Computed example of a mutant assay.
Amino acid sequence: MIYKKLLMCFIICTAIFGCKEAVNKEHVKDISSKELLKIIESGDVQLIDVRTPAEFNEGYIENAKNVNFASPSFAKDITTLDKDKPVIIYCRSGNRSGKSVKDFINAGFTKIYDFNGGILEWKSEGLPLVTDTP
């Protein structure tokens, strides 16, 4: 009896998470720092840093716009972005950017790149960060 319940839970979880992943893959591509550089160089894209303003001020990728994922108005804030332009989302390590994907999809974005290594990967590759301090 317990095995049937466990099997049923497994099937339900697989169905829920499997469907979610299929939806995300339709709209989202996970990218590395090298791919991020190529995308930025190749065209018109919006680079969105979803960290807090304090984290953003410590250093960010050039031309990034800060939209705080922890803000209660995050879902509303991203609606001011151009839905017709591809968007690259990043954070510190990829956790918040990955979670924010759902909000971008719900807001109508169809070309989403998730830089899942975040600032930590960027720094580890020795790539430059912009700071507002001289």
Rank of each mutant, 00 (worst) to 15 (best):
G43E: 12
K83W: 02
I48L: 14
T133M: 04
K111E: 11
K5A: 09
Q46K: 13
V67L: 15
T133Q: 02
P53S: 13
A75N: 10
V67S: 06
A75I: 04
Y60V: 07
F69E: 01
Y90M: 02
S32V: 03
P128T: 11
A75K: 06
G118S: 05
I40M: 14
E62A: 15
D132A: 05
N116F: 08
N116Q: 07
Y90G: 03
L81R: 12
T80E: 10
T133F: 09
K99Q: 15
I12N: 10
C91A: 07
F74Q: 13
L7C: 11
M1C: 02
V101T: 07
V87Y: 01
G117Q: 14
F104W: 07
G117A: 14
G126L: 12
K85Y: 02
N24G: 02
T14N: 12
D44M: 04
N57Q: 07
D77T: 01
W122G: 06
F17P: 00
C9D: 02
S97C: 01
R51L: 13
S33R: 10
T131H: 00
T52R: 14
Y3Q: 11
F115R: 03
I16N: 08
G126D: 07
V45T: 14
S73P: 08
I88D: 08
N63R: 14
E21W: 07
G94W: 03
K123N: 13
K76V: 00
F56G: 06
T131I: 00
N63D: 13
M8W: 10
E55S: 14
I40R: 15
G108E: 13
F10P: 01
V23G: 06
C9A: 15
V45I: 15
K102E: 04
D44C: 03
F17K: 02
G126R: 01
K65I: 08
N106G: 07
H27K: 05
I40W: 09
E41A: 14
K34E: 05
H27C: 06
I112R: 08
Y3A: 07
D84G: 13
T133Y: 04
R96W: 07
T14Y: 09
N95G: 10
N63Y: 04
E35T: 10
G18D: 05
P53H: 12
I31C: 09
D30Q: 11
D84Q: 12
M1E: 04
M8C: 02
T133N: 07
A107R: 03
Y3K: 07
A54Q: 09
D103A: 13
G117M: 11
S71F: 09
K38Y: 04
N57C: 04
I31N: 07
I48W: 14
G117T: 01
L36K: 11
E21T: 11
F109R: 10
D44K: 12
D114Q: 07
W122R: 13
V87S: 04
K25T: 04
K20Y: 13
M1L: 02
G108D: 11
L36V: 13
T52N: 12
G43Y: 00
